[in-house]
Design a protein around this nucleic acid. Structure first.
Ligand SMILES: [Mn+2]
Ligand SMILES: [Mn+2]
Ligand SMILES: [Mn+2]
Ligand SMILES: [Mn+2]
Lengths: 218, 218
DNA sequence: TTATTTTTTTAGTCTTACCTAAATATGATA
DNA sequence: TATCATATTTAGGTAAGACTAAAAAAATAA
């Protein structure tokens, strides 16, 4: 059984490995965990001894297969709970992350398997992120950032890259959510800003917005 | 915000106060928490400084109003989660306690209020224990122990005193659950054992069983 | 009342997961 | 290559929450 702190480190390393693809630096982990590099060194050494990460002094850290499995399972729980909160308890998608951060550490295979079932074995969480199955595998999708679309292309919103409260609330205000159709009416090369059509409304969005919205074309 | 350890102590003291009605001894808490008396002393001193218990050296501990409220809220969460696990996830009533022990420490008023609602604002948990409302008040019922019934009296099972896995599984085997009608066909004064009628089956039960089943007559 | 047993507290350690400050390794610059 | 800046680790400490052993208070017995 791994402690709450260990699970959070494994999760952070998992995400960082995907973002930076390759070894994860001590400082990167410290930033993500909002802790000090020296604390990270302590922890990755311990996780190394437990066989959950491969850590070499001054070189960086990667998850072992075992560590990967544990991290994926924590993420699975996080995302399933988020689905529960939104689908069943009618929470709004910008309210569920912090609660899921707590729920993801409840230990019970039986619980998570029944929850998965109760929710209809969903493949994606409320933010469009894929939910790993019990073996850590998740559905791959061909999503791209809205910022990659050209003028007159359109796509369906399938997820968000950032899921901060502010960003999600902005999207609500603009009536954008998972499943919303978005068409690019204009794109400014100078700053990457766009004019888009959502339903019957057209409006301006900055590059920053476009770089945090995933769409599926096809 | 109180730590997991603090919440567990408050909960233990709450239950002990009701069972022993009066001040709770350090050893009683240690027994309940499966820890050492010296650890208990440390903790009740800290809870005393936080104003959650009234503790006097060598005299014992009681909850303050504030401590009582926090304890009742933890118990509220525990029992609501048990209802969720049984009603929605179809767990069996002997499987839910340990999971609820973890879930009860998830902090979010909004979560528990929505969960309560989702479950239809239940008054009792799967073991017949009353669920405190958000102010700590709970439904009082006139339940008595089956062992208090006399020959030919009957009652409806409304709860269990002990809820260990072994006991609950015994009850299942005998087809006794909340709502089951039980009639006392015979009672042995020497050892308190009984012959009871459940549905169409009659069988012998020991005093120990009869002292752990709550029934409602009338 | 005095002696003995039981209960409770105090003193001193341990582990986990943090921290700061100092030392050291690595990488970039001149 | 020598120097400097940055990244990382080590050393030493802290707080929470546990423990053991010893001291002190309270309860019980003689
Ligand atoms: Mn989340
Ligand atoms: Mn999510
Ligand atoms: Mn329970
Ligand atoms: Mn219960």
């Amino acid at each position: 059984m791994n402690s709450l702190a260990e699970e959070n480190y494994l999760k952070a390393i998992y995400h960082l490995q995907r973002e930076l693809d390759g070894d994860v630096s001590t400082n990167a982990i410290a930033d993500r965990m909002e802790t000090k590099p020296s604390s990270v060194t302590d922890m990755v050494q311990k996780l190394g001894e437990k066989g959950l990460v491969s850590y070499k002094r001054y070189k960086g850290t990667t998850l072992t297969d075992q560590g990967q499995k544990i991290a994926a399972n924590v993420i699975r729980k996080h995302r399933l709970w988020e689905v529960f909160l939104v689908e069943k308890l009618k929470f709004h998608w910008d309210q569920v992350h912090d609660i899921a951060e707590q729920l993801e550490h409840v230990h019970s295979e039986e619980l998570i398997s029944r929850l998965d079932n109760f929710l209809g074995n969903p493949d994606f969480d409320p933010h469009g992120d894929p939910i790993p199955d019990k073996h850590g595998k998740m559905k791959r999708t061909e999503k791209k950032l809205l910022s990659e679309l050209q003028k007159n292309q359109q796509g369906v919103c399938v997820g968000v890259k950032e899921s901060s409260g502010e960003f999600l609330q902005y999207l609500d205000k603009k009536k954008i959510s998972i499943g919303t159709k978005i068409r690019v009416l204009g794109k400014e090369f100078f700053d990457g800003s766009m004019v888009i059509l959502v339903g019957k409304d057209q409006f301006f969005i900055s590059k920053k917005i476009a770089e945090n919205l995933y769409v599926q074309t096809s």
